[in-house]
Amino acid sequence: MDERADLVLAADRHLKWRALDPLERALMQLCGVCLVGFTSTTLLDVVTRVAGHPLLWPQEVTSTFFIYGVFIGASAATRRNDHLQLLALTEAMSGTTRRVFEVMNRAVVMGVGLFLVVYGWQNFLTGFGSFRMPSMLPIAYLYAPIPLCGALVALFSLEQIVNGLRHGFAPPPSNCAS
């Protein structure tokens, strides 16, 4: 694969499994779809209201894109190590102390992911008893990304823990000459 097309930074490659790179790419693309969908349906809603012919469905679609975007984005951000970490604290450490704190940080994030799986799934199942207006779709479809996000957050945290323990958490030294 062309290095320019690689989403994983060279400094973070030691914490990533190449097998999960296509999943990260798909998550990033879905984030883009959600952002475009959220923006365009909000614009449509505003334009139709200003024109004096408001529509009901754009608000429902907008909230769906927003909710899916948040949970898909949280999953992608966890893989990219852009979210949910106390980086400033651990980057100032080295050796065993850093290793312990890096594992603890990621273990806490993995725990949050597992809670999202368990309680998100319960929420999803409960959502079949309530319905959205005006579509009358079960509200469960809004809860669907929660357990999926939790599973991905847990997976990406595990990936970083395993690879960090194998290769170290600190980025490898740069190969460029000073």
Rank of each mutant, 00 (worst) to 15 (best):
E3S: 14
E3R: 14
E3K: 15
E3T: 15
A5C: 06
D6F: 02
D6W: 02
L7I: 08
L7F: 05
V8I: 12
V8E: 00
V8S: 00
A10G: 07
A10Y: 04
R13F: 02
H14K: 03
H14I: 01
L15R: 01
K16C: 01
R18A: 11
R18T: 07
R18D: 09
A19S: 10
A19M: 07
L20M: 08
D21K: 05
D21N: 10
P22S: 06
P22E: 06
L23I: 10
R25D: 04
R25Q: 08
R25V: 06
R25L: 08
R25K: 12
R25W: 05
A26N: 05
L27K: 00
L27W: 01
M28V: 09
M28S: 05
M28A: 08
M28C: 09
Q29V: 13
Q29I: 13
Q29M: 11
L30V: 08
L30D: 03
G32I: 06
G32C: 07
G32M: 07
G32F: 04
G32Y: 03
G32P: 03
G32E: 07
V33T: 07
V33F: 11
C34W: 01
L35Q: 02
V36N: 03
G37E: 03
G37P: 00
G37K: 03
T39C: 09
S40H: 01
S40T: 14
T42R: 02
T42I: 06
L44T: 12
V46K: 10
V46G: 08
V46P: 04
V46A: 13
V47T: 12
T48M: 15
T48N: 13
T48L: 13
R49E: 08
R49N: 14
R49W: 12
V50I: 15
V50L: 15
V50K: 15
A51C: 11
A51T: 10
G52S: 13
H53Y: 12
H53F: 09
H53E: 13
P54L: 09
P54S: 10
L55T: 10
L55A: 15
L55E: 09
L56W: 07
L56S: 12
L56P: 02
W57Y: 15
W57S: 12
W57L: 15
V61F: 11
V61R: 05
V61K: 06
T62Q: 13
